[in-house]
Amino acid sequence: MTIYNVYIFDREGQCLYYDEWFRTKQSGLAPIQEYKLVFGMMLSMKSFVDRLATNDSNQTVNYYKTSAYKMTFLESATSIKIMLNTDPNATGIRDLLHKIYQTWTETANSAAKLELFASNPPNENFLKNRVRDIVMKHPAYV
């Protein structure tokens, strides 16, 4: 069991954050192109499932799974989207996504306040260290 990588997107599809741990295969695209492809795939998947399910209006994609990996989705009410790639058999990933989202919101709020009062914008490692700490403590890691 392992955790491969994580993407965080805003509502317009800008990639706010990317990190990877045990990724062994690159997509062959430039990072910016890959982020666009991931976001586009998620939009298509949402459109796909919306049209297929006629029961109810509130529906979200939980995850998709292939033979080699599993991508779990989390979308907040403000349309922040987090996608986490893990081993297909990893468990407890939804809780991990919620923790990452919580870390993201806290860090984004702190960064916004800092930008108002400090001359230097917050360091990028400010978020990276916190996310890595959460991920590496998770049982699905390694």
Binding site: N5, K25, S27, M41, N55, N58, T66, A68, Y69
Partner: peptide, 17 residues
């Protein structure tokens, strides 16, 4: 987009519905 080698396409897709 697979992060590891020799992945298939989507085999399972789960939503709330």
């Amino acid at each position: 987009l697979s992060p590891c080698q020799k992945s298939s396409g989507v085999e399972v897709l789960e939503t709330t519905q």
